[in-house]
Simulated scan of single mutants.
Amino acid sequence: MRYPQGGGLTPERQVFRERIRLEAAARFAAGESNAEVAKDLRVSVRSVQRRRRAWLGVGTEGLRSAGPVSQPRLSEALFAVPEQELAKGPVAHRWPDQPWTPTRIRTLIGRRFHKSLTLSAIARMLHRRGFSHQVPARRAVERDEEAVAGWVKETWPQVEGPWRRSTPGCASRTKPDSR
């Protein structure tokens, strides 16, 4: 089974599936039909046919798990290098403003390690290592607090509209007519 967002089976699930395949190999040796094996193991007949062909060609070893599909793209030791580069800030890497974005981090990793990572993989990798979204530490210099306070008091109530209150005379609270 393939997962479109780079996911995969957990190690526990891989062991479970390998155990199912090895049980199927024992049933193949006992001479059971594909339909019987599929029904008992709760898998598709097509899958059993594919596993039987592998078992006939290579034997039981052909049904063993090959391990994880892929290793992490950047190991813990290798991640120390981009972490140091991230600490220097984007301006040190010739970007004109301060925020680090996943696209900039992908470019940095590509330049440094010649590896291409998806933006979601970069976001997951950073989150696992304790990084979070950047939030500006200060407000903009141009911000006028008096104008903001006036807008909140005068304009916002008009935009928001009146609150609907539930009162005893409200239609949802009246007794049904006894006609």
Rank of each mutant, 00 (worst) to 15 (best):
G8F: 00
Q158N: 11
V45G: 09
A24F: 02
T174L: 05
S178Q: 07
V48E: 02
P102V: 05
R2M: 11
T10K: 09
A54E: 06
Q49Y: 02
E12M: 04
A66L: 10
A35H: 13
R52Y: 01
L41Q: 12
L117Y: 13
A137M: 15
S178M: 06
V69I: 06
E154F: 01
G57E: 15
D144K: 11
Q84N: 13
K175L: 12
M125G: 09
V135T: 06
Q158H: 12
A25F: 12
D97H: 11
K115Q: 14
V15P: 09
Q98T: 13
E76G: 06
F79N: 04
P168K: 12
P168W: 01
F79T: 08
D97G: 13
F16R: 14
L126Y: 04
T118F: 03
S47F: 13
P11R: 15
I105W: 01
E18A: 03
I122P: 03
H93E: 00
K88D: 03
S75W: 06
A87G: 05
A137W: 15
N34V: 12
E160G: 01
I122H: 04
G59V: 09
T107V: 12
S65H: 07
S70K: 04
R42K: 11
P90Y: 00
I109R: 03
G169T: 10
A87D: 03
A24S: 03
V91E: 01
G130M: 15
R51F: 07
P157C: 08
V152L: 15
V81G: 00
E12G: 01
